[in-house]
Design a protein around this nucleic acid. Sequence first.
DNA 1: TTCATTGATCTAACATTGTTAGACATTAGA
DNA 2: TCTAATGTCTAACAATGTTAGATCAATGAA
Lengths: 208, 208
Amino acid sequence: MTTKAQPEPSASKKRRERERREMRVRLLEAARVIASEEGWNAVTIRRIAGKLEYSAPILYQHFSNKEELFVELMMVGFADLAEQLRLAAEGSPEGRLVAMAEAYWAFAFASPELYQAMNGMDGVPFGTAETPWEAKNAFRVFRIALQGIAEARGTELADASGAVDTIWAFLHGCVSLAMAGRIAGGTERSRTLMLNALEPMFAAQLRD
Amino acid sequence: MTTKAQPEPSASKKRRERERREMRVRLLEAARVIASEEGWNAVTIRRIAGKLEYSAPILYQHFSNKEELFVELMMVGFADLAEQLRLAAEGSPEGRLVAMAEAYWAFAFASPELYQAMNGMDGVPFGTAETPWEAKNAFRVFRIALQGIAEARGTELADASGAVDTIWAFLHGCVSLAMAGRIAGGTERSRTLMLNALEPMFAAQLRD
DNA sequence: TTCATTGATCTAACATTGTTAGACATTAGA
DNA sequence: TCTAATGTCTAACAATGTTAGATCAATGAA
């Protein structure tokens, strides 16, 4: 590490940088609030700026375009999700699997608009080249948790990464269809179906 | 039935009505082509009309707005999917389950832009009130097929509707994440993971 | 054939979107 | 105090979905 080569920035410069960061966060929060209240279609540059009593171009002092703001919002979401999963994986070994699924579900429905932005919104840099760090990290947390559960049962996963992808896909499918209102019986039944299918699905991922 | 009360429409009137229907279909096709070539963001009223060498407002002679065109496109998709699933369910009893999953997968990746429009695109009348007929029908075909597979094994589904929702959610989750490039190893590995997890998942849906 | 009506299509315009350029004032640092 | 940088604004741009009104050809009855 060869830091500490730069001269200490002045007090006022530090203050302004802090203010800039705060402004950036406030813009992100405003976007999220508007989305949760009126859906993503209502999230417009002018609305975001207006909510903070600024004019539209202020956004371009903090993001190169609207897309970048969305991507950053998604990254906040993935970091948040990873944390929730990590917490859920701390419980008793028997209940961990269900706890994680419940945590995933709770996260998704706590802010559906954010969940939708994280999954499915097009124009986001996922498949293209390299998956952003926050998303990768969420997967990592998931994998470690699943491995821990298998270990607590005295066995291991046949294919750890494959198990994560498979179970994640299932959870996402359940949440996604439930959120779109595509499962008869509403979210309560969807949640039950998901939790019921979870255990056999996990068991099939263990080494014989 | 008390039809045949109306006077027979004149020949030219019939011709114009047919032309109108054809125009409607051509607009839908144009939208689909543009979406497949450049993504949904490129599907604009002027582009659709321009592709047929018409001016923009022509679209409003056939759809009340852009949304309605999208919804109709989705319905075409669901009808198509139902047909594919029905065909897949005609094979040998042992291979039917896998065939259906493969059919679902193939349908999704044959026209990803349509699949994305069918799932996840917001502003569509799904959760709100009544699910449109085409979507319901696709579910029905799925259910009948699953029941047939269970029957061929000499047993039955513990909860037929629940099994359809559960397995459909899983397939959708796999396709959705794979399409977004969110599964390491690409679509080939995604597909394999999906097919591997399918059998134990189905088995868990059978009556004990 | 003539002529009013209907239908298809267009141009022009509107408000709203994301985005950029240029002006203005305030602040920072010498 | 002077200059440079920073924050913010207004004004404009092109592109979007959508509507109103005009135009022009085909239709069907006299």
